[in-house]
Design a protein around this nucleic acid. Structure first.
Length: 745
DNA sequence: TTGTTTATTCTTTTT
DNA sequence: GAATAAACAA
């Protein structure tokens, strides 16, 4: 199969190092590539696929390649097309979730679904779990719905259906979980929906229960490739094994040092024991880094070297001279954000574009202060992640209407919109409807459609009939294959959704209208680009998009994202902020050795995103839950030898201890929060104009007549800034900043 | 039944 | 400080 003479011409046209080349050309069995950060992993993968198509006689259609995001998949598809000059629309490349969805749509009836099944996102999932809990009379105070969701997800990740779980001998709590899990799965099937985990596990179940189906796919997928293999979970492992166990043409790439998704069920063991599962695996190690400067690599290597559970490797680069890695200490998150913004301003007036810069943080909540300050300084930014477009209330409402047109059994969707906009169908009415539906063995939505309400009071009937008429009209439009955007527009006008928002006329309502318009646009464009696809396809695509998918690196905006989101990306300059104990590592992982190591890897992943410049920072005090909390620098920075970075202290002299004010305050909480904030300092940051931030409260200064003193307060700004200073002789003076001619100490 | 105010929780990270 | 749940008035 591998014709080296024929292939070498093609391979030679692509620049690959020796190891990369060997990995691409070898074709005799399972392969595992350990690819450190920035070692050209994507290049190897795309070249491998191109090689298979061009020289190993495979059709794009016969290749199954799982990536971590749809964005990565799209880029790789393009790259392969460039390399081969062969259209690759047939190539099975995508996230595990989308690949599985594709398989499940075809084979749905074999596992008791129709091909139009609905995909439930995390929010829908939680709604259904709450509903199940109510039915089972499980108190939300004894078991948090989120916890139950996590437990269920755990079972699913391991591909254990509720039927295989035995409650005997288990704790009461566990029995309740199993019970709820069983009920939840039954409900999902009843409403013809699958959650994210189901997409993977149901595919595995499909193959396990139908050997003939499995065989078809085994024969069809002649090569199986997996990117980011360190972040696959058990069900993904089973899937890959099922597909590849006969022909053993499997190629996986990953880096155990970049495994950061164990909380989502990822098993680092998958990569560490791959060669034991697939015998005679060829193992490759890519260690030459093509991304970062030597200083950054030294720093990163040092971070990761303190982890015990890893395959030893060390990144290196032939590049020599480089900028120091900087670690900066700030007083608080506001100062941190402000200083970072200022540095970004400086950088972007030099040779680095805004788009080459990223601010990375641990939690989404940290983004807000950066947004605020970047806006104030008129620096363009893009925030990747956070609450995505498709999670907005108004967008989800629209989608719920559309979902019901495809799947009238979708009870969560129905509950969402039955009284939105308000049409007098409250909790009582919905309860009664549910009863009627149960008696007639139909879904609530079907009852509404057929206007078969029975015992419902006059007021509610009016609203229900209205809804019924609207939907019957929409269904008619759909059957006449009206364009999707027309159906949505119709819905928006007939329900009065738009009218309601227009009448509200607030900043928020205008924004919602804008979002709805954006959705309409997206729908129109999608419709034009995919004339043969259906509403089901559209709904699937948007439920499986990741935050990063829509993003493309643009020249004129700083990128803000979480460390997790940054995986696989690179930037010339990185600001890794909030490097504090409790954040990195997260407080919740303090007491777990393995999770601490994962937090360390997260820091490593963040650092290795940088090409030329890496600046980390931590603060002494951070606003969390609406109040200031004292913070300590991350333990991970302590383990790095000081020689590997340059330390800068910007925290100044304002070091009053701050008491953490926590939980049992209840009624006094509000007042306490305010006090906490006032105690901290007045908002002198609020009106900084670019160049006047040289004075800070508590700062020590020297005056050439009065000697040393401490700044007590600052008022005004710019040329009007006045300082109140307490001098060492006990005198208190107020002076204009611009005339005082002070020296900072 | 609806819209308003008040209390409470929430922060890891995401397909 | 924001989002959500609960409590309340109209």
């Amino acid at each position: 199969m591998s014709d080296i003479t024929a292939s070498s011409s093609f391979i030679d046209s692509i620049i690959l190092n020796q190891v990369q080349k060997e990995a691409v050309l070898y074709n005799e069995g399972p392969q595992l590539v350990f690819a450190g950060a920035g070692t050209g992993k994507t290049r190897v993968l795309t070249t491998k696929i191109a090689y298979l198509i061009k020289h190993a006689g495979m059709f794009p259609n016969n290749i199954f390649a799982a990536t971590f995001t749809n964005k990565a998949a799209a880029e790789m598809r393009n790259r392969v097309e460039e390399l081969t000059n062969i259209p690759c629309t047939g190539l099975w490349i995508g996230t595990f979730h989308s690949l599985c969805a594709r398989i499940l749509r075809r084979e749905a009836f074999k596992i008791g679904y129709e091909s139009t099944f609905t995909i439930y996102d995390a929010t829908d999932q939680l709604s259904l779990i709450k509903k199940v809990m109510k039915e089972l009379q499980i108190d939300e105070r004894t078991m948090q719905p989120r916890l139950l969701r996590r437990m269920i997800s755990k079972y699913k990740n391991a591909c254990i259906p509720p039927g295989e779980l035995d409650g005997a001998g288990k704790s009461f709590f566990e029995r309740e979980v199993i019970n709820a899990y069983a009920r939840y799965q039954r409900e999902l099937k009843r409403v013809m929906a699958m959650d994210f985990d189901d997409l993977l596990t149901n595919t595995v179940f499909l193959f396990r229960k139908n050997p003939d189906v499995l065989e078809t796919y085994q024969n069809h997928f002649r090569y199986v490739l997996v990117d980011e293999y360190q972040d696959t979970n058990l069900s993904q492992f089973y899937l890959v094994k099922l597909l590849a166990r006969e022909h053993r043409r499997i190629f996986v790439v990953g880096d155990d040092d970049q495994s950061i998704y164990s909380w989502r069920g990822a098993k680092i063991e998958n990569i560490l024991s791959f060669d034991k599962v697939f015998s005679n695996t060829k193992v490759y190690k890519l260690e030459q880094n093509y991304r970062s400067s030597q200083a950054i690599l030294d720093f990163a290597n040092s971070i990761i070297s303190s982890n015990k559970n890893r395959v030893e490797k060390k990144l290196w680069t032939p590049l020599k001279s480089s900028m120091d890695v900087v670690v900066t200490r700030y007083r608080d998150d506001r100062q941190e954000a402000d200083a970072v913004a200022e540095k970004i301003g400086d950088l972007s007036s030099g040779k680095i574009e805004l788009g080459d810069i990223a601010i990375l943080f641990r939690t989404n909540a940290q983004s807000r202060i950066f947004e605020e300050i970047l806006r104030k300084r008129n620096i363009n930014y893009v925030l990747i992640g956070g609450t995505s477009f498709y999670e907005r209330k108004e967008v989800k409402d629209c989608l719920a209407y559309l979902r019901l047109l495809v799947n009238p059994l979708d009870s969560i969707g129905c509950e969402r919109i039955i009284n939105v906009p308000p049409r007098g169908i409250g909790a009582k009415t919905q309860e009664r409807l549910a009863k009627v539906a149960r008696n007639k063995e139909k879904s609530v939505f079907e009852i509404v459609l057929s206007k078969d309400f029975e015992v419902i009071s006059g007021r509610a009937v009016k609203g229900l009939e209205e809804l019924s008429d609207i939907f019957n009209h929409l269904i008619q439009l759909k059957e006449n294959s009206a364009p999707l955007q027309d159906i949505l527009t119709q819905m928006l006008t007939e329900t009065g959704y738009v009218e309601l928002l227009e009448n509200e006329d607030t900043e928020e309502s205008r924004m919602r209208l804008e979002n709805i318009n954006e959705l309409l646009n997206a729908l129109t464009i999608w419709n034009e680009e995919n004339p043969q696809k259906t509403l089901t396809d559209f709904l699937e695509e948007i439920s499986l998009v990741s935050d990063i998918d829509g993003w493309k690196q643009s020249g004129n905006a700083v990128n803000l994202m979480t460390l997790h989101c940054a995986k696989g990306l690179e930037f010339k300059a990185i600001f890794l902020v909030g490097l504090e104990d409790g954040l990195i590592p997260s407080r919740q992982n303090f007491n777990d050795e393995l999770k601490l190591e994962e937090e360390c890897r997260l820091f490593y992943v963040g650092s290795t995103r940088a090409q030329e410049m890496l600046e980390c920072s931590y603060v002494d005090n951070r606003m969390r839950f609406g109040m200031y909390m004292p913070m300590a620098p991350s333990r991970f920075i302590d383990s790095v030898p000081p020689a590997l970075y340059r330390f800068v202290d910007q925290s100044m002299l304002f070091t009053k201890p701050v008491k953490p004010i926590r939980a049992p305050l209840r009624k006094k909480q509000h007042a306490e929060k305010r006090k906490n904030r006032e105690f901290f300092y007045q908002p002198f940051y609020d009106d900084f104009s670019q160049e006047t931030i040289q004075y800070r409260m508590g700062q020590m200064v020297a005056h050439n007549k009065y000697g040393q003193g401490k700044i007590l307060s600052i008022s005004g700004f710019g040329v009007d800034m006045r300082l109140t200073i307490l001098f060492h002789d006990g005198s208190r003076k107020q002076m204009m900043a611009k005339f005082a001619n002070l020296q900072a100490l």
